[in-house]
Amino acid sequence: MNINATLIGESIAFIVFVIFCMKFVWPPIMAAIEDRQKTIADGLAASDRAAKDLELAQAKAAEQLKEAKAQAAEIIEAAKKREAQMIDEAAEKAQAEREKIIASGHAEIESERNRATEELRQQVSALAVAGAEKILERSIDAAAHSDILDKLVAEL
């Protein structure tokens, strides 16, 4: 055994070292470690949150895309309907126009024919009178026989 006053010196050194470590070494290092742990934990939480947000945004975007597609389909459908309707309308209008034109044509033809008939009648009656005059070689009172002539004309 070689125990001597070194024991006392080393004990003092030990006590001083431990106190120094306790006051000036341990707390700042531990504080730095704990601070960094907190920062890392916060960062991880934030990244978790961001991932969740991203997922939500993606879902929202997909939904919006779907909605937009549906809307587009709807618009196309409406446009097609409108197109068909416009074609129908135009066809109808054209048909009506055609009928009107035809009807007016018919009416014109009719009136032309009536006029011609009337004219023909006049001329025929005149011709008949002239012919009868020539046949009879005498003057016939046109006025006196006009009723007979009129009857003739009406029979034509």
């Binding site: 055994m1 070689n2 125990i3 001597n4 070194t6 024991l7 006392i8 010196g9 080393e10 004990s11 050194a13 030990f14 006590i15 431990v18």
Partner: peptide, 11 residues
């Protein structure tokens, strides 16, 4: 040195 180790252990 036993003085060293005993200083620690006595502390």
């Amino acid at each position: 040195d036993m003085n060293m180790t005993f200083a620690l252990s006595l502390g």
